[in-house]
Simulated assay, not measured.
Amino acid sequence: MAGHSKWHNIKRRKESQDAKRAKVFTKLSKEIFAAVRESGDDPDTNLRLRMALTKARAENVPSDNIERTIKKASGEAGAVDYEAFTYEGYGPGGAAVLVQTLTENKNRTVSEVRHAFSKHGGNLGENGCVSFMFNRKGQLIIERDEEMDEEEFTLEAIEAGGEEIDTDENWFYIQTEPDDFEEVKKALEEKGYTFSKAEIILFPDVNTTLNDEHAEKMMKLIDALEDNDDVQNVYHNFEVEDEQLARLS
């Protein structure tokens, strides 16, 4: 069983995204569009599209939005093409930050990402400077209700192939190996569970804590990056405890 501390970053990221629902829909639509342009509109043969659809449905993106995006990507010759770029750097206090982007204008994106780092006490680094600190893992998050028994759910998640299972008062968290993600997800869906989050993300090997000054700047850096329409994901190893988060909020 995982300790609670490693999930604080996930929980805070979810709360931040919930407050920016429209931006989340836009970013997921962009990922679906790029996936279709890259390898076609059949999720059975297009893994990138299949993962994008899984994430979009977990975020409750309307089916009409998804279908419209797929049709647009499939049918428009000469439509915009997005390129994926990853940027790495250090936040205030030396926290590792990895930023995944999807853009039709690399120069604009790198300029805006660099500006966000600089403005909030960090600095953009060379490729590879922090990526070695992260590992790909599947992540499934299920909202708790009063009828869910923690011990029973934990056993079901383990039987489904979950690698690590954790919980707090509001959520169940399941971590998987990337190759096991879809199998675990399907097994839990067959038991009637629905997901608030279902995606493959990057987990840091080691988390770092920051003093209040650096922590406040770090949270502003994360928010600034996530607010950028070209930024798809922001990963970091900053660990904020509930008490510190309450002080800074």
Rank of each mutant, 00 (worst) to 15 (best):
A19D: 07
G3P: 12
L124Q: 02
A215I: 02
I32Y: 01
E59R: 07
N65Q: 13
A198C: 11
L248N: 01
R247K: 07
D205N: 13
E183S: 15
V130P: 00
M218C: 04
T54G: 14
E150W: 03
F132Y: 00
R68S: 12
K23E: 12
E150G: 12
L124C: 06
K27L: 11
E59Y: 14
E164C: 01
R50V: 13
D42Y: 04
R57K: 13
H8T: 09
T26P: 06
V234C: 02
D223L: 10
K72G: 10
V240W: 02
D179E: 14
V206K: 14
L210D: 01
N105G: 14
T54A: 12
M148P: 08
P92K: 13
Y193S: 05
K6W: 11
F153M: 08
E239F: 10
T176N: 08
M148H: 08
K20Q: 09
N135W: 00
E150K: 14
I66Q: 01
D149L: 11
E182T: 11
K27P: 12
T45G: 10
D242Q: 12
A157K: 06
Y173K: 11
V231T: 08
T69A: 06
T167A: 11
G121H: 00
E152L: 10
E152H: 04
L188A: 05
M133D: 00
K72V: 06
G162I: 03
L221T: 03
L140S: 04
D179A: 14
N46H: 05
F25R: 14
E88T: 09
R108N: 13
K220H: 09
V97A: 04
E182Y: 08
G40R: 04
G94F: 01
P43N: 02
A79I: 08
N237G: 06
G75D: 14
L245G: 12
D81V: 15
A198I: 09
W7Q: 06
L47G: 06
Q100T: 15
K30Y: 15
G138R: 05
R247P: 04
E156C: 03
E213M: 02
K191Y: 04
N123D: 03
K186W: 11
I201F: 07
V240Q: 00
P178Q: 02
G162H: 01
R13Q: 08
G138N: 04
K55T: 14
Y82A: 03
F238W: 02
G89A: 07
N233Y: 04
L102Q: 15
E83D: 15
K191I: 06
R68H: 10
E15I: 10
K27F: 13
K72W: 09
A246G: 12
F203N: 07
A2W: 12
K11V: 03
D44C: 09
E112C: 09
T194W: 10
M51F: 13
G94D: 00
M51V: 13
L47M: 09
G192A: 03
Q139T: 02
M218V: 03
I142V: 12
L248F: 01
F181K: 10
K6D: 05
L210M: 07
M133N: 00
Q139F: 09
D180S: 13
K72H: 11
A79P: 06
V234T: 08
E216L: 15
E112H: 13
A22C: 07
T109E: 05
W171V: 02
G122R: 04
F181G: 10
L221C: 03
V206E: 15
V36T: 02
